[in-house]
Design a protein around this nucleic acid. Structure first.
Lengths: 230, 230
DNA sequence: AGAGTTCTGGTCTGTGTGACAAGAACAGCG
DNA sequence: CGCTGTTCTTGTCACACAGACCAGAACTCT
């Protein structure tokens, strides 16, 4: 019944228990042609992923959503569990496993928290704990699922042109696509539908606008792109 | 410093802490033409996935490997994290998050623990807690990675014929493959290599034997199969 | 009105995939 | 020993798809 020391607790069954359960979120967005991740300055001064402790009546995804709203003001963001990092030595404060989440936020989102800022997802600079490893896992995950699901809806929630979608896909995949082929293939996935509107005002021919058919996680049924050879 | 009740603890920082950290393993194998999962009888009488509590100086994958050896006698099995299930109400005993793992064991493996037995991965019967959900996630995961990695090495560790490999792949994917096309495609992944031996004694032309090039997780570089349309 | 830019539909070609056909290498039997 | 049946193995063929290119459409700017 008594915590044996500062670093871990003990329950009534005699099992050692963690000192707490944490969540960390990899918040990804697109700025210009680059994939960016949100990092916050920690009390110790180092930078790290936004996160916090899970409450005793909370599901971890609720904690992640709560922290995300604090940093960005956004609700209803795409959120997916990446995995759990539970090496007992990962946090010098004690035995604190963390459940890592991947979040995707719309183009143009700015941090509401002054301690938070965008960094390039590649080369984010030094991060606390094992956060660099978590970020790397997030990059692989989102790139792998790009053409197979509607994860991009988190970054393109509103009506978008195929050029805007292409910029997002290119930033995430790290490659360039032929505009005509990209349009054909994205339409063929069946994940998007035309709104009937067009975006004028810019230079060139106005682009037709599209939206994702569903906000909820979904999978394409038509053509799929192969992933780049490993 | 004092656990507030039987169901959760509290650390020195004032944060509530879980009552313990658990692991559960989905142990998959192939018996005949079917994908099977290992289940154990729990003290309460219900059936569930093999699992246990993580020690304070242990990484969860070590706990999973330890429990797996208790149930099957196997060391060096393929082990991969599936995800974490941490709904505070998932376990009636208290706030106990569990990290779920996927393990693949060779064809012919028999449980060493009398309380453990094989069940069909589809239709395993009622399972305790959220273990049915965890098993479903494991089935999807292994089917999705089948053609993209050498996960099957966990089920086919020794020399095998292409027919034996095909039986395993068909059991996992739940489909049937053309023998000739299967042979061409599996060879084209670059994941396997011929041993030079042949398996005689059975009826028909003796089959050439193959082995996986590497035991460690690896990815194919050649042809890949598309996943079945969702 | 003309030039420049971007979007969009069409075509063409190389390649991967699935299905099929035919030959090779054994065991069992009359 | 030859025939039959089975299984493994190689080869071929048709189709669908990814990628690239081209030309026209639709706008803005000068």
């Amino acid at each position: 019944m008594v915590a044996v020391n500062r670093w871990s607790a003990q329950n009534s069954e005699g099992y050692e228990a963690p000192a707490g359960l944490a969540v960390d979120a990899v918040v990804l967005g697109v700025r210009g042609a680059e994939l960016v991740a949100l990092v916050t300055r920690r009390p110790e001064g180092a930078c790290g992923l936004p996160g916090g402790f899970v409450g005793p009546a909370e599901r971890p995804e609720e904690t992640a959503a709560r922290k995300l709203e604090e940093k960005t003001g956004l609700r209803e963001v795409y959120l997916e569990q990446l995995g759990t990092f539970a090496d007992p030595r990962r946090d010098p404060r004690g035995w604190i496993p963390t459940v890592a989440y991947l979040a995707l936020v719309p183009v143009g989102t700015e941090p509401t928290d002054l301690e938070a800022s965008w960094r390039r997802a590649q080369d984010p600079g030094p991060l606390a704990f094992d956060h660099a490893e978590i970020l790397a896992l997030a990059r692989d995950r989102v790139a792998g699922k790009l053409w197979w699901s509607n994860v991009a809806v988190g970054i393109l929630p509103g009506p978008f042109s195929l050029s805007e979608a292409r910029a997002v896909y290119e930033a995430i995949a790290g490659t360039r696509y032929d505009p005509a082929t990209f349009a054909r293939d994205l339409r063929a996935t069946g994940l998007i539908e035309p709104t009937g509107e067009r975006r004028a005002g810019a230079t060139g021919r106005p682009a037709a606008l599209y939206r994702f058919r569903s906000w909820a996680p979904a999978w394409g049924a038509g053509r799929r792109k192969r992933v780049a050879g490993g």
